[in-house]
Simulated scan of single mutants.
Amino acid sequence: MHTRNTKCLMICRSASFLLVFIALFSVFPLHLLPCFLAGFIMYEIILALTVLVEYLVKAQVARWVSIMFLSILLILLIVVTASKLIGFLLHDCQNLAGFDATASNLLRDAQRTLSPLITRYLPLNIDELKNQLINWLHENLVMQTFSRNAAHTVATMLIGVVLGAMISLQSNGKQKLHTTPLQDALLDRLTVLSEAFHNVIFAQIHVSLCNTLLTGCFLFGILPIFELHLPFSKTIVMLTFFTGLLPIIGNLISNTVIFLIGLSISLEAGLISLTYLIIVHKLEYFINAHIFSGRIHAKTWEILLAMLVFESTFGITGVIAAPIYYAYLKAELRKYDLI
């Protein structure tokens, strides 16, 4: 009897691994990664917020209070974003002279300071830039594809948010009755996946905050010492934080933007930016390695290798999912003392 129970548990565990494996890799062809991420983020936020709310209200209603608060916050965020976008379209887009002048100056400075090998591929003025952009959009039908993908992404993210809230209500710590061995095995897999997701996301937020702080010090502290001021500094800081949420490549994107903008101002600004970014990149390498090794016990080269494999297999979505999947794999292997 004991042997039969042990065999049943092993079969259920193997089946749970297979089902989770199929579900995780079905995310890519079904384009459900935004839903996956939004659901897990909502779930984690509700759990963290519930702990704080329980100090004020009874534990039974703390999770409902957390969900209501996040729902109101999400609605306000959508309303504010929509109003800002409408305001930009109705007011800022009516007077683009300032933007055109700034862009023209940047293009003119780039033509003067950059190598001819680079400037031959750059537009001469803002009108040529607009024409190239319109022709490219027309040839590739980018706007139609972008609109369709954006609508799908927003819809799946909202569905993921709802699912994350619903699942958080089910996992309220109460004793679960009439569970089967397969259910228990699946819950074990999902628990490990949730912990891996939690560790990766919060580790990457810490990394992004460090990158943003160092970038802010450079833009608002070091460059003014040399009497240099980069345009769009606040936008660059925001870009650094949001791109920093993408492991490794996010930092490269923000650094490239800073270097190109600095080079468009003057060769001196470009060299100062490049020198600082090289020094900071070495510092960030150790900071990032320390944060990730403490959270998911993975070295930077391991994460980079996983991202390269996933990018070649699944594209840009694979780059985003690779750290989470890799952290989950290592967590499962450690759980059974395989590594």
Rank of each mutant, 00 (worst) to 15 (best):
I167C: 13
N199G: 01
I118R: 09
S293A: 02
N288D: 10
V27Q: 07
T243W: 13
T50Y: 00
N199D: 13
Q94L: 07
P181V: 07
A155K: 09
E139Y: 12
S254A: 13
F286T: 02
L37D: 04
M68D: 05
S115M: 09
L252E: 09
A269D: 06
L30M: 13
H152S: 15
E302W: 04
I261F: 05
A23I: 13
G244D: 01
L24A: 09
I167V: 15
L274V: 14
A321T: 01
L277R: 09
L333Y: 12
G294F: 02
D100L: 05
L18S: 11
C93D: 06
I249A: 13
L228K: 05
H206I: 04
L129A: 13
C210A: 14
L274H: 08
L305F: 08
F36W: 11
Y336D: 08
T179A: 06
H178G: 03
L190Q: 09
V257P: 05
K282Q: 15
L223H: 06
S66W: 01
Q132T: 01
V51D: 10
E268D: 07
R334W: 08
V20R: 05
I22Y: 11
Q183P: 00
P247D: 12
D92Q: 12
P247E: 08
L33N: 03
R334V: 11
I261K: 01
A321Y: 04
F242H: 03
C93K: 08
Q204Y: 05
S266G: 02
E311G: 15
M238K: 06
C210G: 03
W64S: 13
N105P: 00
L30S: 14
A151K: 08
G164M: 03
Y325P: 01
L141R: 15
L9I: 03
T235Y: 10
E284P: 00
E44V: 10
V57E: 03
I253R: 10
M10T: 03
H297A: 14
A203P: 04
F197T: 02
L32Q: 07
I236W: 01
T180H: 04
A185Q: 07
L333N: 11
R334I: 07
N95K: 11
S104K: 00
V65G: 02
A151E: 06
S83A: 14
I41R: 01
G87E: 11
H152L: 15
L47N: 06
A322T: 05
N105F: 05
T156S: 06
G294V: 02
F197D: 02
A23N: 03
I225C: 05
L329I: 15
F218N: 03
T215I: 15
R4N: 14
I261T: 02
R4G: 10
A59I: 08
Q144I: 14
A110R: 15
I249G: 02
F226N: 04
L230Q: 07
L169I: 01
K282I: 12
Q170A: 07
F88V: 06
G160Y: 10
F202W: 13
L74T: 05
M307K: 11
T243D: 06
S66L: 01
F88Q: 03
A151W: 08
H206C: 07
L47D: 04
T243M: 13
F292G: 00
L245V: 12
L89D: 12
H31D: 12
T3N: 06
H206L: 12
E195Y: 07
T6F: 09
V51S: 11
G39L: 11
V237H: 04
I272N: 11
